[in-house]
Design a protein around this nucleic acid. Structure first.
Lengths: 156, 156
DNA sequence: CCGTAGGAGTTGACGCATCAACTCTAGGCA
DNA sequence: TGCCTAGAGTTGATGCGTCAACTCCTACGG
């Protein structure tokens, strides 16, 4: 189907520096979040998603969809965050037994401050380092990549 | 020091799609490697690094430096890979007690085939999706990002 | 010769991520 | 009514990744 010759050294090098850049960037941001807010990247994602839902409770399936995480990953993460007091699982519906997920007040505080801090870090380490041209370029590439990679999993 | 206003929704969206693209790409590549070679990304990194060293043994510190991994991460990974039969720890020097790391023949086979397979996947999912202009653009950004993020950790 | 500082490597604990197996409930249908 | 299947959610096992604490050797200084 496709050519099956090994990658050129230059291609490897490209791939390597690309991966390295991503790792350094995410590592830097995650450390910042951890140090200043004592929040992990995974916790941050959950907090933000619930925060955006306002006071409405979400269900595991919704969270899973919106984060594009495995359901079991969500469940594990919620267990840890419930222990930390950031979220609570309540009952869903009148007499049903499904769990609804909501932020505690502690969770709301954490979300609010983390969004500020993390936003600033993103600006400092990423957005501010880009010219407007670079930014729109990267954004276009990202959208193209997501389109290309995300749809094949939609098969029935 | 820096402006402390929250990110614009558009900036969040940019950040989000950018992260999503990376996650989808690395997830796709890691799954391909796992399915076709039964090798994880971490194992792959170690195999390649040792492969590039030829038959010369490396020490943990060298591996750690070259992969830009924490020493303890290297040690844990080597323990797992030793169990799988990919690498072996031998004695280093005449009467010294430091461990030297080498590939087993099994490890060499795995490395060789994984480099081919993974290289092709990188080509399919990443390199082939870029115009030459995009490629040199991304590469330039990566190098710039690595320069910016890597040096601050070099402080004495 | 002793002891002490520092570097190399390992280990343990814990959170993140994924896969497979399990439970529970609801809804459909004989 | 009673079974039975499908979907939602949970749990366990295992590997990855990080931090801190530990061991063991080596080198240096008295």
């Amino acid at each position: 189907m496709t050519e099956t010759q090994p990658l050129e050294p230059e291609e490897w090098e490209f791939w390597d520096v690309w991966m390295r850049a991503q790792r350094l960037l995410t590592r830097e941001l995650e450390r910042g979040l951890q140090r200043t807010c004592d929040i992990s990247k995974a916790e941050f994602s959950v907090l933000v998603t619930l925060w955006q839902a306002g006071r409405r409770e979400m269900r595991v399936g919704e969270l899973s969809e919106s984060l594009d995480w495995d359901k079991s990953r969500v469940a594990h993460q919620l267990t840890r965050m419930e222990k930390r007091g950031f979220v609570e699982r309540t009952q869903y519906g009148a007499d049903g037994r499904r769990a609804g997920i909501g932020l505690t007040s502690e969770g709301r505080r954490a979300a609010q401050s983390a969004i500020l801090v993390h936003g600033n870090n993103i600006r400092r380490h990423f957005l501010d380092s880009l010219t407007p041209g670079q930014a729109s370029f990267l954004r276009a590439w990202s959208e193209q990549a997501v389109d290309r990679l995300d749809s094949p999993t939609q098969l029935p």
